[in-house]
Write a protein that binds this DNA or RNA. Structure first.
Lengths: 253, 253
DNA sequence: GAAAAGTGCTTGGTCTGACCAAGAAGTGGG
DNA sequence: CCCACTTCTTGGTCAGACCAAGCACTTTTC
């Protein structure tokens, strides 16, 4: 940022699709395009901007990857290119790859999870009147089924943490929490599947910790909820993930 | 997630570029592609995958937007399409648009900043031996110049917070912190520019708080550093931003 | 012989123009 | 009135062409 000394980077020679991107962003930043609005058809953008359709499409593709757009063919009200709002999809995808590239060591991811989920849990506990309790309890209870396959156990585990994040009422925090949690989903499933005799013991521990977290949130105990979640995330990785994966550090596939 | 009740979403009809995307991601997740590696030229991918060049390019464009790739023309060692590692660029861009779309109300952004920067400051204070202190002090001292234009004041302000985030040694936390901070950069500049007589008073307050934060980090006082940063972020928005922008709530352009 | 100028090839960037398929809306016959 | 057919719009895909950036190699020039 704002490095006064150097920053003589060669002027980023703008490619055509970047110009298109800039135009669309302008409209969004200026408030002329809001969630639900429809963009002109690709072919119209082509003549409006005087560029090829390929350039337009590459720009739209970028926005779609960021969760800003949603495209569908056809003519109906559901068709065309419309402004959407799915930041978590874009975030999840982005984090997933960068974690795999080991740009983000596993320890960093755990630290981020601990921070975000601690904060999310505190928010949730402070909003027990918000009505998100039911959505948290459902995956909690389903995980109690001892016959549950590990993959579904992992899914409900994810759902439990996601529900807490969303119960806090903060979309940005929730989306980041969800993205980080989803990014390690595959890694956790791998860990679960490698557990043999220990599986039941690990599952029991997770169930117990989840129940304790739920109780703290339901009781509106902000401090306890935050502390329990943080300990839950850190403890699980420290005691189990590192043991199973051999403390290799990276979060590879 | 894993909603057992419904989830009968229509099968996402895979578009060609998504197949290309999947293939590249496979290679990354499998560890066959690492940072610094070069992808085959677009034309080779075309015949390897049996798709058009447009499809390949759209896929590569998505990965580039996520900060996973970097493309340059020509033949030399710097050219071609290379696996890069610039998650913060992608993150910043993504958050910027979604904040502008008001998917994220300003209060949510402040909450996220407070959470992330608090955690980052605690990490930084715990790592004073890490050597990041100089990079934090430089923007701090530059901001003391009373003749500094407001735009540069804002730049150094950003740099100060970024330096703290990076001094913590956690790339993921730092990148998220930087992305969120950058996403509100324009908003803060607007606030600065609207201040008239109050400007000097506000600047003085920010300088004082920054100095206190720096001292806490330099002293390795983890708790104080975290508390001060959190109070700094929350206080600034509560006392100043909301006053100037009329408490409108959204973080629009 | 060495520096300078020119040539060729690889690579991403762009454009044109065409065709396909999904899907809503009109259209005609029963 | 209803069903089948056609039409038109829209995104998705493709093939083929040309441009410009750069590096590597050759030729020219002094």
């Amino acid at each position: 940022m704002a490095d006064t000394t150097a920053a003589w980077e060669p002027v980023p020679r703008s490619r055509t699709f970047e110009l298109v991107l800039a135009r669309v962003e302008e409209q969004i930043l200026a408030g002329n395009l809001r969630v639900g609005d429809r963009l002109p058809p690709e072919r119209e953008l082509v003549e409006m901007l005087g560029v090829s359709r390929a350039a337009v499409r590459e720009a739209l593709r970028v926005l779609e990857a960021q969760g800003v757009l949603r495209s569908r063919v056809g003519t109906g009200p559901e068709s065309g290119t419309v402004i959407a709002a799915m930041p978590d999809a874009g975030l999840t995808q982005l984090l997933r790859l960068h974690i795999a590239l080991a740009n983000f060591p596993m320890d960093d991811v755990v630290e981020a999870r601990a921070t975000l989920e601690r904060a999310s849990a505190r928010l949730a506990a402070g909003l027990v009147a918000g009505g998100g309790l039911d959505r948290i309890r459902e995956p909690l209870l389903r995980m109690d089924d001892p016959a549950l396959p590990r993959e579904q156990f992992n899914d409900f585990d994810t759902e439990f943490h996601v529900a807490i994040a969303e119960a806090g009422g903060n979309r940005l925090m929730a989306d980041m929490t969800v993205a980080v949690r989803n990014a390690v989903r595959h890694t956790l499933l791998t860990v679960f599947n490698r557990l043999e005799d220990d599986w039941e013991r690990v599952a029991a521990r997770l169930r117990a910790e989840h129940h304790a977290i739920y109780e703290a949130i339901a009781a509106g105990d902000v401090d306890a909820a935050g502390d329990l979640v943080e300990a839950h995330v850190r403890g699980f990785h420290q005691d189990i993930v590192k043991t199973v994966l051999g403390d290799s550090g990276s979060a590879g596939a």
